[in-house]
Design a protein around this nucleic acid. Structure first.
Lengths: 239, 239
DNA sequence: CCCTCCCTGTGACGTTCATCACTCGAAGGC
DNA sequence: GCCTTCGAGTGATGAACGTCACAGGGAGGG
């Protein structure tokens, strides 16, 4: 039976076969059963806005499959992509826990399955299940460390080439696929969006990528990027 | 009786009179009693290194009084000050929870009292006291949100003046003191360190501050900065 | 099939800021 | 006392990158 958007929908958390790999979901059977009872499963098309920066927190979203970009914008209309969230991540947890406005916006980049949990349900879930609380703390710690990496990249990079090299290497670590001709990356983002990830302009991204191509560091085929020389990229970054 | 460094030392968490104001420490009496039993109180002079980026996590530090800067460095020797921690903050929690290396270094900016908790003690403390775990989650959420603000500032600011204006306004919100001639800030940092906070060079900081002085936006008296025109600063930032 | 829209690519130009090089003043040690 | 060290202030210079402007190509819709 075809499911919407060709997604492999998992309605039941208890029987979920990828649960063990997910830092947040990998909790006691008892806790997962409760989770199952309070969650709302939803399928979202590409481009869905889950929540918007500044909004009061309604609850958390658990990203079961698909990807979502987290963004923050200035009044001048400039946008910064803070992070691309991967399956297993929890979105909106910090705002929900503190009861403060969402600090970023979240938008799906591809058709995605999300489990939503209402704020009150989530908070009482945490206070009644210690290990859910522990896993939340772990999830938050991971998010904090990834934010920290982002800060390093934005603040310590000398040049824009360095930031872009760093981004490509980051991607290759999380989503890279080894092939005979180098590491293959599937890039869902336009140059404009890449620019928003590293705080620069579209033109500069285009120029630097051309430069990388000329120097045989990368090769671009449609939405694939092959890293021909990971070494060269690593040579560009400080740490 | 004089205490070292003229610090008001609080040895006993249960009787601590500022406990209620501290997001992390404000937990149940039962939990605080346990905390008291596993903590090690220490007084650190200015410039003490609590932990270093990359080190395996030994445990967490609760900042009772004083201030500490959190930094990250590149191999090229460039340093970025990620945050100046205030009393009540917990340092090293994310690394300790995940068992991953500290992602930043921590160094005291003034004589400070810290409570240290060993990793194993902290982890079992969290699993046995739900509300300690909740307060840790809140603390982590706060840190995550402040990291997010830092990312915004680094990534969305168009100019260095904007970043500096943002920094001054941030300080005025947390440490500002109203006076007839404007908001007074006590700046513990050198121009070099301010530069490291906003990812620029010392010379640029000096130049921009001079410029602000010329335009009667600020006035500098020793280590005090008076914000004469908060409005002008606000006019420089996008949001 | 053509038209439009969006993404990519590229040139010219100007501004901002990092870098280097130096001076000056204040603090602190011997 | 003097000398050293560290932070602040300032000028000259060049490179990096943002901005504007426009061209080409591919996808999708009427």
């Amino acid at each position: 039976m075809p499911t919407p958007y060709n997604l492999d929908v998992r309605n039941n958390c208890v029987e979920c076969n990828v649960r063990a790999e997910r830092i947040f979901c990998n909790m006691s059977d008892d806790a997962v059963a409760t989770l199952d009872a309070i969650k709302f499963t939803g399928i979202y098309p590409k481009g869905s806005l889950l929540f918007v920066e500044g909004e009061d927190p309604r609850g958390i979203f658990i990203l079961c499959s698909g990807r979502a970009k987290l963004t923050t914008s200035s009044t001048e209309g400039k946008t910064l992509i803070v992070k691309v969230a991967e399956p297993g991540e929890v979105l909106g947890a910090s705002a929900t826990i503190l009861g403060k406005p969402y600090e970023v916006s979240a938008e799906t980049l591809e058709p995605s399955q999300m489990n939503f949990i209402k704020r009150d349900d989530f908070l009482s879930f945490l206070t009644t299940h210690v290990d859910a609380c522990m896993h939340t703390a772990q999830q938050l710690s991971t998010k904090y460390q990834s934010a920290q990496r982002e800060i390093r990249s934005l603040g310590l990079s000398q040049t824009t080439s360095e930031k872009l090299a760093r981004l490509l290497l980051d991607w290759s670590a999380t989503n890279g696929e080894e092939t005979p001709k180098g590491i293959r990356l599937v890039v869902l983002l336009t140059h404009e969006e890449i620019a928003q990830m590293i705080g620069t302009t579209r033109e500069t991204v285009t120029r630097i990528l051309s430069d990388f191509k000329k120097r045989n560091i990368i090769e671009v085929k449609g939405s694939n990027i092959f890293l021909l020389s990971k070494k060269s990229l690593e040579g560009m970054i400080s740490t």
